[in-house]
């Protein structure tokens, strides 16, 4: 199963590192990362493969949300299908 993780918030040191460590602990493979910075607003989009993930979707989602709260960012994970449904025929 593939999913997109989006991180939106104020830029600071260690955002990517923290997300990557969390994903690596759960054996989630990162397929693609893109990041932009506009003024101080940070946006990162990450495509991941969860096929080998050691945690179920729910747990991973909760941990990412918690990490977001801790770092004062909004972190979401959503299955890829919703974006395909909305933007591709």
């Amino acid at each position: 199963m593939r999913a997109f993780i989006t991180v939106i918030g104020k830029d600071k040191v260690g955002i990517i590192a923290a997300v990557c460590v969390l994903l690596s602990e759960q054996n989630v493979n990162i397929l693609d990362i893109s990041q932009t910075l506009f003024q101080e607003s940070f946006t990162m989009i990450m495509q991941v493969d969860m096929t080998q993930s050691s945690a179920p979707f729910e747990t991973l989602s909760e941990r990412l949300t918690q990490l977001g709260t801790d770092m004062d960012l909004t972190i979401r994970i959503q299955r890829e299908e919703i974006f395909n449904a909305m933007h591709r025929i």
């Binding site: 893109s34 932009t36 933007h87 591709r88």
Partner: peptide, 12 residues
């Protein structure tokens, strides 16, 4: 592949 604009549009 879905692009960044489309992802952010969905979230918005």
């Amino acid at each position: 592949m879905i692009n960044k604009g489309e992802i952010l549009q969905t979230i918005e």
